[in-house]
């Protein structure tokens, strides 16, 4: 997303050109521009902005799903409840912790897989498919997989480890649920593989060659050329992963059971699970929407922090594109 900065400079450079055009033509061009982007814009306003504002309004009411006829405006009561609801706050802290451990780990593993596969290996397309498989398997399959894997008695992992004489581990118990949750998430780390591979391909061969001539070994090349050049992509995936991870609710549900109205055990009871249960099980729509708006604010803050951090570690090529 370092693109933003680059884009702005490109657009700004283009501006004087527009002024040089005859007035009528520039007006026509502008019209064409609006025409081309109108599909997105109209849908965005009608089905993005309006629902958002309506949802914002409902979060200030006692809406429970059945009382449209006698809806009451209750001020900030729902928001007050968000901050006094110990379950919501604990879930938020838990979600943040799991996000800050799981997402960077996922980015690193996905990146390392790509680096491995970038070595001109035979059978590349097969390996790629296998690493990418978890990302394309249907949710129901992932749910079934991890329930069978993590079962304490007769579960796949415990049976496998049993061959080596290990005692059964309580994978989904209080002690292990969070690591198990992160492991099952890392299984999907190959989801970013294609973007990393594309990024690695985009590293100019000339840079690597000149480095080899200078006598830099593989590790030095990797540290001084590959990683810096990949930081924008790592940053992009980190940011998207962070946003996605805060909204995660399906993964804990699938680890718990196949029911969409299920109730994950506390160590993996995430903020979105709490919001989901309040809306779809307890029918507390107003409160649920307040929970979501608070989450939105939290994600925005963390996204901005990550954005701000990029000047310390993300490498952008200076000069022209």
């Amino acid at each position: 997303m370092g693109q933003v900065a680059i884009e702005q400079s490109v657009v700004q450079k283009a501006r004087p050109k527009i002024r040089l055009l005859p007035r009528k033509q520039s007006k026509r061009r502008a019209l064409e521009f609006y025409l081309f982007i109108s599909p997105w814009f109209i849908v965005f306003v009608l089905f993005g902005i309006i629902p958002m504002l309506w949802g914002l309004y409902l979060s200030f009411t006692n809406y429970t799903g059945y009382n449209f006829s006698h809806l009451r405006f209750i001020g900030a009561e729902n928001y007050h409840l968000v901050f006094t609801d110990s379950q919501a706050m604990q879930a938020l802290a838990r979600t943040a912790v799991l996000t800050f451990i799981g997402v960077p780990l996922g980015v690193i593993i996905g990146f390392l897989l790509a680096v491995l596969l970038n070595n001109k290996v035979k059978g590349l397309s097969m390996y790629r498919t296998i690493f990418y498989l978890p990302a394309i398997l249907p949710t129901v399959a992932s749910g079934l997989i991890w329930q069978m894997m993590y079962q304490t008695d007769g579960g796949i992992l415990n049976t496998l480890f049993g061959f080596f004489g290990m005692k059964p581990i309580d994978w989904m118990g209080y002690g292990m649920a969070q690591p198990s949750f992160i492991i099952s998430g890392l299984w999907g780390a190959g989801g970013g593989l294609m973007i990393y591979l594309a990024g690695l391909k985009g590293i100019p061969q000339s840079l690597i060659e000149s480095a080899s001539i200078d006598g830099a070994n593989y590790w030095r090349q990797f540290i001084h050329i590959t990683i810096p050049l990949m930081t924008p992509i790592l940053f992009f995936n980190l940011l998207m992963g962070l946003i996605g991870s805060f909204q995660n609710f399906l993964q804990p549900l699938l680890l718990t059971g196949l029911s969409l109205t299920g109730d994950p055990i506390q160590p993996i009871y995430l903020y979105m699970n709490h919001a989901w249960i309040n809306i779809f099980v307890f029918d507390r729509f107003g409160y649920g929407l307040a929970l979501l708006w608070v989450l939105f604010a939290v994600i925005l803050i963390f996204a901005l922090i990550v954005f701000w951090s990029q000047k310390y570690w993300v490498h952008y090529e200076s000069g022209e594109d």
Binding site: Q147, M148, Q151, T152, M172, G257
Partner: peptide, 8 residues
């Protein structure tokens, strides 16, 4: 039960 997590 939810402790032994037997999904059988």
């Amino acid at each position: 039960n939810s402790v032994n997590n037997d999904k059988n």
